[in-house]
Design a protein around this nucleic acid. Structure first.
Length: 122
DNA sequence: TTCCTGACTCCAG
DNA sequence: CCTGGAGCCAGGA
């Protein structure tokens, strides 16, 4: 099912809702914590569609209020999405500004900072 | 319309 | 423990 929106952009209705769900969920991640794509997808009921979460992040840059996409990394704590920010170092800088240490494109103490929506949220 | 790609993950070997 | 292949599904060519 497709529908045309006011901004003249076409999205599948389900996709649009999925986007917004992802955005809101990411905004719930506490400052100084991180999570991964798979957990978000699972929490939203998409199970194995972790790639779609990353794809949604791609569209999150224009979202209001801002989506802290830097807090979403892959399951090993690597900043796989860094190249999609304004500069390749933006993601890391944003994280460090929140007190998260990053080394070699990986979140230090990832397992301790990991935030699982299906456990932290009701 | 078909084919390819990807901010990912899981699983069999 | 490491690797390759498959599942996933929206967009772009």
């Amino acid at each position: 099912m497709k529908q045309s929106l006011q901004n003249n952009v076409t999205y599948s209705t389900d996709t649009r809702n999925f986007f917004e769900d992802v955005f809101e969920l990411v905004r719930l991640i506490p400052t100084g914590r991180v999570t991964n794509y798979g957990s978000l997808a699972k929490y939203l009921g998409s199970g194995k569609s972790s790639r779609m979460v990353g794809w949604a992040m791609n569209a999150s840059h224009n979202a209001e209020p801002r989506v802290p996409a830097q807090r979403v990394v892959n399951r090993n704590g690597f900043l796989t999405g860094k190249n999609h920010f304004e500069t390749p170092t933006t993601m890391q800088e944003l994280l460090e500004k929140e007190g998260i240490q990053v080394k070699n494109d990986k979140v230090v103490k990832f397992t301790e900072l990991y935030w699982d929506p299906s456990k932290e949220l009701l």
